[in-house]
Write a protein that binds this DNA or RNA. Structure first.
Length: 233
DNA sequence: AGCACA
């Protein structure tokens, strides 16, 4: 079974994520992409050796999670198809909300302590070897495409957005309604000969970025999550 | 591949 026989829950577990993407960007992008299914209570992603390439997105409703598991299965995200399942255990944010801090959470505490100890040991190791790997290659803001070696696939942030994966029947009017909600909107351009794509222009790149963040992954139909990148100039 | 709450 695709979901690995794990019963439905409010939280989805995503793996096969691109490990090169910085944690904060990853969380933001996941938030953008999945908020179309419902209210998101929390996004968790860690970059530890055991946990990188994975994330948890916790919804306020099980139905939202179910739709996300089905519809976003295999969605190409930073060049890798997402593998989505339900999470095996309940998210802390939910336990907290229900006021169910079970008194005998000893096992968990033990695990935490173990993890903590491990982490400290790793830290000690790192400072001992003293390698300055503090900076990850700082690239432009959220685009789901990660520019990879040599090839200039990713356009730098600019005031024009390139929209892909639109249903063929999309009109520029429909897009205008969506995109004009965000400040700095100028116009939508579509090309008759090329259905499924569009360009949306804003006054500047900050405003275009805000719209990108807000509408990334937005679905005009369930099969068509928008893929928004900066236009190549 | 890998199921946590940095």
């Amino acid at each position: 079974m695709l979901t690995g026989d794990i019963p439905p829950s409010q939280t989805i577990y995503i793996k096969n994520l691109n490990e090169k993407v910085k944690k904060e960007e990853l969380k933001r992008s996941l938030y953008c992409l999945f908020s179309q299914y419902g209210r998101i209570l929390d996004v968790v992603a860690l970059k530890t050796r055991k946990l990188r390439g994975q994330a948890w997105v916790c919804f306020s409703e099980v139905m939202a999670a179910s739709n996300a598991v089905r519809q976003m299965q295999g969605f190409p995200f930073y060049e890798k198809p997402m593998r989505i399942q339900y999470a095996k255990t309940k998210s802390d944010c939910l336990v907290e909300a229900e006021g169910n801090w079970d008194p005998n959470a000893k096992k968990k505490k033990k695990q935490e302590e173990k993890a903590e100890r491990k982490r400290r040991a790793e830290e000690a190791q790192q400072s001992a070897t003293a390698n300055g790997t503090t900076t990850e290659s700082g690239r432009g803001p959220a685009s789901f495409r990660q520019g990879n070696r040599g090839e200039q696939e990713t356009a730098p942030p600019n005031n024009i957005l390139f929209i892909q994966n639109l249903p063929y029947e999309t009109s520029s009017m429909m897009l205008q309604v969506l995109f004009q909600q965000y400040p700095g909107f100028r116009e939508v351009r579509m090309i008759e000969a090329k259905p499924g794509i569009a360009f949306v222009e804003y006054e500047d790149d900050v405003q275009s970025s805000m719209a990108m963040q807000a509408l990334q992954g937005f679905k005009i139909t369930p099969q068509n999550p928008m893929v928004i990148t900066y236009a190549k100039k």
